[in-house]
Amino acid sequence: MKIKFKLYATLQDKLPANAVDNAVEVDVDEQVTLFQLIDQFGVPRESAHLVLVNGTYFAAEQRAETGVLSDGDVVAIWPPVAGG
């Protein structure tokens, strides 16, 4: 299946050169875990602070679970960030 994978802020340098608007489309196995995706792009797990699937937060304990992603999902990841 295909999903959209996004990295932002100080993680955006981990994206390949063909990324557009901080996003790349990737082919993944249906049983892929979020940690596997995070590892695949060379993002240190401790830097993947905010992990969103279609805008909804996935906590650290959910990132090793399989079957959390479906075709067309959007995974977006930030390091610890804040503003105001």
Binding site: Y8, L50, G84
Partner: peptide, 20 residues
């Protein structure tokens, strides 16, 4: 130490949009 100096508060634009 890193996020605010690099991107300022504007780092939030994509975050807040993503969470709807």
């Amino acid at each position: 130490g890193e996020g605010l100096p690099a991107l300022g508060t504007q780092v939030l634009m994509n975050v807040i949009n993503e969470v709807g």
